[in-house]
Design a protein around this nucleic acid. Structure first.
Lengths: 120, 120
DNA sequence: ACTTACGGTAAGTAATGACTTACCATACAA
DNA sequence: TTGTATGGTAAGTCATTACTTACCGTAAGT
Protein backbone atom coordinates (compact mmCIF):
# COMPACT_ATOMS: atom_id res chain seq x y z
CA UNK A 1 0.00 0.00 0.00
CA UNK A 2 3.03 2.22 0.48
CA UNK A 3 1.15 5.04 2.16
CA UNK A 4 3.83 6.04 4.52
CA UNK A 5 6.77 7.77 2.97
CA UNK A 6 8.38 10.68 4.69
CA UNK A 7 11.22 12.77 3.32
CA UNK A 8 9.44 13.00 -0.03
CA UNK A 9 12.49 12.52 -2.19
CA UNK A 10 12.62 16.05 -3.55
CA UNK A 11 13.67 17.88 -0.43
CA UNK A 12 17.17 17.96 0.96
CA UNK A 13 17.55 16.95 4.57
CA UNK A 14 18.90 19.86 6.52
CA UNK A 15 21.46 19.71 9.23
CA UNK A 16 19.10 20.53 12.04
CA UNK A 17 16.71 17.82 10.91
CA UNK A 18 19.40 15.19 11.29
CA UNK A 19 20.35 16.63 14.65
CA UNK A 20 16.82 16.52 16.04
CA UNK A 21 16.40 13.03 14.75
CA UNK A 22 19.67 11.98 16.36
CA UNK A 23 18.89 13.42 19.77
CA UNK A 24 15.37 12.04 19.55
CA UNK A 25 16.73 8.72 20.78
CA UNK A 26 17.43 8.29 24.52
CA UNK A 27 20.44 6.02 24.03
CA UNK A 28 22.04 8.55 21.74
CA UNK A 29 21.37 11.29 24.26
CA UNK A 30 23.15 9.17 26.86
CA UNK A 31 26.11 8.71 24.55
CA UNK A 32 26.15 12.39 23.72
CA UNK A 33 26.12 13.23 27.39
CA UNK A 34 29.07 10.94 28.03
CA UNK A 35 31.14 12.98 25.64
CA UNK A 36 30.31 16.14 27.47
CA UNK A 37 33.37 15.84 29.67
CA UNK A 38 35.80 15.19 26.86
CA UNK A 39 36.73 12.83 24.00
CA UNK A 40 36.38 9.08 24.49
CA UNK A 41 37.18 5.92 22.51
CA UNK A 42 34.31 3.61 21.58
CA UNK A 43 34.90 1.01 24.29
CA UNK A 44 34.81 3.70 26.94
CA UNK A 45 31.57 5.00 25.52
CA UNK A 46 30.01 1.54 25.45
CA UNK A 47 31.09 0.77 29.01
CA UNK A 48 28.14 0.97 31.37
CA UNK A 49 25.56 1.08 28.63
CA UNK A 50 23.02 -1.73 28.44
CA UNK A 51 23.33 -2.10 24.67
CA UNK A 52 26.01 -3.98 22.74
CA UNK A 53 29.12 -2.37 21.34
CA UNK A 54 27.97 -2.65 17.70
CA UNK A 55 24.79 -0.86 18.68
CA UNK A 56 26.94 1.92 20.05
CA UNK A 57 28.85 2.08 16.78
CA UNK A 58 25.59 2.49 14.91
CA UNK A 59 24.48 5.27 17.20
CA UNK A 60 27.82 6.99 16.81
CA UNK A 61 27.36 6.92 13.08
CA UNK A 62 24.01 8.67 13.34
CA UNK A 63 25.40 11.27 15.72
CA UNK A 64 28.34 11.85 13.42
CA UNK A 65 26.14 12.35 10.37
CA UNK A 66 24.20 14.91 12.38
CA UNK A 67 27.50 16.67 13.07
CA UNK A 68 26.91 16.31 16.77
CA UNK A 69 30.20 14.46 17.22
CA UNK A 70 33.59 14.23 15.52
CA UNK A 71 35.78 11.23 14.98
CA UNK A 72 39.57 11.06 15.00
CA UNK A 73 41.53 7.82 14.94
CA UNK A 74 44.53 7.32 17.15
CA UNK A 75 46.16 4.05 16.29
CA UNK A 76 43.56 1.34 16.59
CA UNK A 77 41.31 3.57 18.63
CA UNK A 78 38.60 5.80 17.30
CA UNK A 79 38.18 8.81 19.48
CA UNK A 80 34.88 10.66 19.46
CA UNK A 81 34.22 14.15 20.75
CA UNK A 82 31.42 16.67 20.69
CA UNK A 83 31.10 18.76 17.54
CA UNK A 84 29.48 22.15 18.06
CA UNK A 85 28.09 22.29 14.53
CA UNK A 86 25.06 20.15 15.27
CA UNK A 87 24.33 22.03 18.47
CA UNK A 88 24.57 25.33 16.65
CA UNK A 89 22.22 24.09 13.94
CA UNK A 90 19.60 23.16 16.51
CA UNK A 91 19.95 26.38 18.44
CA UNK A 92 19.55 28.38 15.27
CA UNK A 93 16.43 26.43 14.41
CA UNK A 94 14.96 27.01 17.86
CA UNK A 95 15.94 30.66 17.85
CA UNK A 96 13.97 31.09 14.68
CA UNK A 97 10.78 30.13 16.48
CA UNK A 98 11.92 32.02 19.47
CA UNK A 99 12.34 35.30 17.67
CA UNK A 100 9.37 35.14 15.35
CA UNK A 101 6.82 34.04 17.91
CA UNK A 102 8.25 35.84 20.90
CA UNK A 103 5.77 38.69 21.04
CA UNK A 104 2.88 36.30 21.53
CA UNK A 105 4.19 34.93 24.80
CA UNK A 106 6.54 37.48 26.16
CA UNK A 107 5.37 37.03 29.71
CA UNK A 108 6.18 33.34 29.75
CA UNK A 109 9.61 34.02 28.34
CA UNK A 110 10.31 36.50 31.07
CA UNK A 111 9.30 33.99 33.72
CA UNK A 112 11.89 31.55 32.48
CA UNK A 113 14.61 34.17 32.34
CA UNK A 114 14.13 34.99 35.99
CA UNK A 115 14.91 31.56 37.36
CA UNK A 116 18.03 31.09 35.31
CA UNK A 117 20.40 34.10 35.42
CA UNK A 118 21.04 33.05 31.80
CA UNK A 119 24.64 32.14 31.14
CA UNK A 120 26.14 34.72 28.78
CA UNK B 1 13.73 -12.12 24.33
CA UNK B 2 12.86 -8.63 25.59
CA UNK B 3 16.32 -7.22 25.04
CA UNK B 4 15.24 -3.81 23.97
CA UNK B 5 13.78 -1.69 26.70
CA UNK B 6 14.60 1.97 26.88
CA UNK B 7 13.44 4.35 29.57
CA UNK B 8 14.29 1.79 32.25
CA UNK B 9 11.24 2.27 34.40
CA UNK B 10 13.01 3.94 37.28
CA UNK B 11 13.87 7.24 35.66
CA UNK B 12 11.41 10.05 35.11
CA UNK B 13 11.14 11.36 31.58
CA UNK B 14 12.20 14.95 31.55
CA UNK B 15 10.63 17.70 29.58
CA UNK B 16 13.48 18.11 27.16
CA UNK B 17 13.45 14.41 26.42
CA UNK B 18 9.84 14.57 25.30
CA UNK B 19 10.60 17.67 23.27
CA UNK B 20 13.53 16.13 21.41
CA UNK B 21 11.52 13.03 20.78
CA UNK B 22 8.63 15.10 19.44
CA UNK B 23 10.73 17.17 17.06
CA UNK B 24 12.59 14.04 16.01
CA UNK B 25 9.74 13.34 13.58
CA UNK B 26 9.63 15.25 10.27
CA UNK B 27 5.83 15.44 10.12
CA UNK B 28 5.71 16.94 13.57
CA UNK B 29 8.37 19.45 12.61
CA UNK B 30 6.20 20.43 9.65
CA UNK B 31 3.21 20.89 11.93
CA UNK B 32 5.26 22.82 14.41
CA UNK B 33 6.52 25.08 11.67
CA UNK B 34 2.97 25.77 10.49
CA UNK B 35 2.16 27.19 13.89
CA UNK B 36 5.10 29.52 13.70
CA UNK B 37 2.98 32.28 12.15
CA UNK B 38 0.19 32.04 14.67
CA UNK B 39 -2.52 29.78 16.16
CA UNK B 40 -4.45 27.43 13.88
CA UNK B 41 -7.38 25.01 14.19
CA UNK B 42 -6.76 21.35 13.39
CA UNK B 43 -8.30 21.36 9.91
CA UNK B 44 -6.06 24.24 8.90
CA UNK B 45 -3.04 22.38 10.21
CA UNK B 46 -3.98 19.22 8.35
CA UNK B 47 -4.59 21.06 5.07
CA UNK B 48 -1.74 20.51 2.66
CA UNK B 49 -0.22 17.67 4.65
CA UNK B 50 0.00 14.25 3.04
CA UNK B 51 -1.21 12.43 6.13
CA UNK B 52 -4.79 12.00 7.33
CA UNK B 53 -6.48 14.26 9.84
CA UNK B 54 -6.48 11.66 12.64
CA UNK B 55 -2.74 11.28 12.14
CA UNK B 56 -2.42 15.01 12.67
CA UNK B 57 -4.44 14.74 15.88
CA UNK B 58 -2.05 12.10 17.13
CA UNK B 59 0.96 14.23 16.32
CA UNK B 60 -0.63 17.20 18.03
CA UNK B 61 -1.03 15.11 21.14
CA UNK B 62 2.66 14.27 21.19
CA UNK B 63 3.64 17.88 20.63
CA UNK B 64 1.31 18.96 23.39
CA UNK B 65 2.72 16.47 25.86
CA UNK B 66 6.14 17.84 25.04
CA UNK B 67 4.82 21.31 25.85
CA UNK B 68 5.75 22.49 22.40
CA UNK B 69 2.18 23.57 21.68
CA UNK B 70 -0.89 24.70 23.61
CA UNK B 71 -4.51 23.91 22.98
CA UNK B 72 -7.52 26.17 23.53
CA UNK B 73 -11.01 25.32 22.34
CA UNK B 74 -13.19 27.91 20.72
CA UNK B 75 -16.60 26.45 20.17
CA UNK B 76 -16.21 23.32 18.13
CA UNK B 77 -12.72 24.30 17.08
CA UNK B 78 -9.55 23.35 18.85
CA UNK B 79 -6.96 26.03 18.35
CA UNK B 80 -3.31 25.13 18.72
CA UNK B 81 -0.43 27.52 19.17
CA UNK B 82 3.24 27.34 19.97
CA UNK B 83 4.16 26.96 23.62
CA UNK B 84 7.58 28.35 24.56
CA UNK B 85 8.06 25.90 27.42
CA UNK B 86 9.25 23.04 25.23
CA UNK B 87 11.55 25.31 23.27
CA UNK B 88 13.01 26.66 26.46
CA UNK B 89 13.59 23.15 27.78
CA UNK B 90 15.53 22.20 24.67
CA UNK B 91 17.55 25.38 24.66
CA UNK B 92 18.51 24.84 28.25
CA UNK B 93 19.59 21.30 27.48
CA UNK B 94 21.73 22.44 24.57
CA UNK B 95 23.17 25.31 26.58
CA UNK B 96 24.40 22.82 29.10
CA UNK B 97 26.65 21.18 26.53
CA UNK B 98 27.49 24.52 25.14
CA UNK B 99 28.82 25.90 28.38
CA UNK B 100 30.61 22.87 29.72
CA UNK B 101 32.39 21.93 26.53
CA UNK B 102 32.89 25.41 25.21
CA UNK B 103 36.59 25.74 25.87
CA UNK B 104 37.40 22.87 23.56
CA UNK B 105 35.95 24.57 20.51
CA UNK B 106 35.89 28.21 21.28
CA UNK B 107 36.91 29.23 17.79
CA UNK B 108 33.92 27.54 16.18
CA UNK B 109 31.61 29.10 18.70
CA UNK B 110 32.95 32.53 17.90
CA UNK B 111 32.45 31.94 14.21
CA UNK B 112 28.79 31.26 14.80
CA UNK B 113 28.37 34.32 16.98
CA UNK B 114 29.70 36.57 14.27
CA UNK B 115 27.14 35.74 11.63
CA UNK B 116 24.20 36.00 13.95
CA UNK B 117 24.25 39.20 16.06
CA UNK B 118 22.82 36.91 18.73
CA UNK B 119 19.33 37.82 19.87
CA UNK B 120 19.57 39.08 23.45
C1' DA C 1 -34.74 17.68 16.21
C1' DC C 2 -31.65 17.08 12.24
C1' DT C 3 -27.56 18.08 9.89
C1' DT C 4 -22.97 19.58 9.21
C1' DA C 5 -18.31 20.68 10.67
C1' DC C 6 -14.82 19.77 13.88
C1' DG C 7 -11.75 16.71 15.96
C1' DG C 8 -10.41 13.03 19.46
C1' DT C 9 -9.93 7.92 20.24
C1' DA C 10 -9.81 2.79 18.97
C1' DA C 11 -8.06 -0.96 16.58
C1' DG C 12 -5.26 -2.76 13.34
C1' DT C 13 -1.35 -2.55 9.81
C1' DA C 14 2.88 -1.41 7.90
C1' DA C 15 7.29 1.14 7.95
C1' DT C 16 10.95 2.42 10.61
C1' DG C 17 14.53 1.84 13.48
C1' DA C 18 16.94 0.01 17.57
C1' DC C 19 18.72 -3.94 18.64
C1' DT C 20 21.19 -8.72 18.21
C1' DT C 21 25.15 -12.10 16.68
C1' DA C 22 28.58 -13.05 13.29
C1' DC C 23 32.18 -11.51 10.74
C1' DC C 24 36.01 -8.78 9.00
C1' DA C 25 39.77 -5.34 8.91
C1' DT C 26 43.32 -2.74 11.08
C1' DA C 27 46.94 -1.53 14.56
C1' DC C 28 50.16 -2.92 17.63
C1' DA C 29 52.72 -6.04 20.85
C1' DA C 30 55.01 -10.46 21.68
C1' DT D 1 54.02 -14.23 12.24
C1' DT D 2 50.68 -14.86 15.70
C1' DG D 3 47.78 -13.07 19.04
C1' DT D 4 44.98 -9.40 21.09
C1' DA D 5 42.43 -5.17 21.28
C1' DT D 6 39.69 -2.03 18.75
C1' DG D 7 35.72 -1.03 16.19
C1' DG D 8 33.02 -0.92 11.70
C1' DT D 9 29.64 -3.44 8.73
C1' DA D 10 26.15 -7.21 7.41
C1' DA D 11 22.08 -9.64 8.02
C1' DG D 12 18.29 -10.60 10.50
C1' DT D 13 14.78 -9.85 14.37
C1' DC D 14 11.74 -7.55 17.27
C1' DA D 15 9.83 -3.22 19.32
C1' DT D 16 8.19 0.97 18.32
C1' DT D 17 5.67 4.17 16.07
C1' DA D 18 3.58 6.52 12.20
C1' DC D 19 -0.01 5.57 9.72
C1' DT D 20 -4.86 3.92 8.13
C1' DT D 21 -10.23 3.49 8.48
C1' DA D 22 -14.10 3.39 11.50
C1' DC D 23 -16.43 5.37 15.04
C1' DC D 24 -18.10 8.60 18.46
C1' DG D 25 -19.00 13.03 20.88
C1' DT D 26 -19.75 17.95 20.87
C1' DA D 27 -20.96 22.61 19.00
C1' DA D 28 -23.55 25.48 16.09
C1' DG D 29 -26.73 26.33 12.18
C1' DT D 30 -31.32 25.24 9.89
Amino acid sequence: MTYHTKYTMGEAIRQYEKAFNALGDPTRRTIFKKLQNGPLPVVAIAKGLTVSRPAVSQHLKVLREAQLINISSQGAQNIYEIDPKGIIAMRDYLDQFWNEALDRFKQLAEQSEKKKTKSK
